[in-house]
Design a protein around this nucleic acid. Structure first.
Lengths: 120, 120
DNA sequence: TGACACTATATTCCTTGTGAATATAGTCAG
DNA sequence: CTGACTATATTCACAAGGAATATAGTGTCA
């Protein structure tokens, strides 16, 4: 755990892929391959995380303390021994929230200069 | 002009600095140093673009056709000969709009999984 | 039965994007 | 005359991601 644990702001701006991984883990723990599929689903196929990118991102995120590997395995019948499950940490959630605030500011900036058709 | 001119989506996701430069040029043409100051101002000091990053980003953006260099100079009295002025191109504006839409989707995703306190 | 696709993790190569530092050079304040 | 500010630019090193490849078991289909 090389994570500094202190200030989530220090990791911003978050690499897009890192943010998408945190989103995928927000509601339930998943293994790598399932994360890839979840991101594709949530973005309607607009973003496909490459396998290489995923596993290196996960490695980095483990070191930063954004995610942790799960010990507990699913029911013996539905398990696939190759799978490695990950969960989002409280720190990871804090960083995701900080990034979400930053993204919201970006959208606000975009609105202010007419890059978005939406209100204001 | 190495810009492909066709599909703005191909350049997404836009590097954060590139997007901020486009925002800075959205309302008026500026020279490099003025862009740096504008970004600092608009983000309340949260983001300070480094000089090296700025000039290399501008170089890249010229090649992509996102921005163009201006020929016309300010009034002879208020001019600084060192300055090089840039303006956003129609293609650059299209790319910025596409990126703004992507950012909006990201915020929507963040809302859907509880990363944002805001509505729904 | 052999080719191909899917699940699952992982590594290597290459390119891009960024920060930090440095260079140059003029102006202006203390 | 020293340091801060304006203004552009280059170099070095690191981070992040796409593409390709490796390994390996399972399933499909002709």
């Amino acid at each position: 755990m090389t994570h500094d644990g202190s200030d989530p702001e220090k990791l911003l701006p978050l690499p897009p892929v890192t943010f998408h991984i945190l989103v995928a883990l927000s509601d339930q723990d998943r293994h790598g391959y399932a994360i890839i599929q979840d991101v594709t689903a949530r973005t309607d196929g607009a973003l496909t995380i490459q396998a290489g990118t995923l596993y290196r991102s996960i490695q980095r995120m483990l070191e930063q303390g954004l995610v942790a590997e799960k010990r507990t395995r699913p029911a013996i019948g539905e398990d696939d021994e190759r799978r490695r499950y990950y969960r989002i940490t409280p720190f990871g959630r804090a960083v995701a929230q900080a990034e979400a605030r930053r993204l919201t500011q970006m959208v606000k900036l975009a609105r202010a200069c007419g890059f978005v058709p939406g209100k204001a």
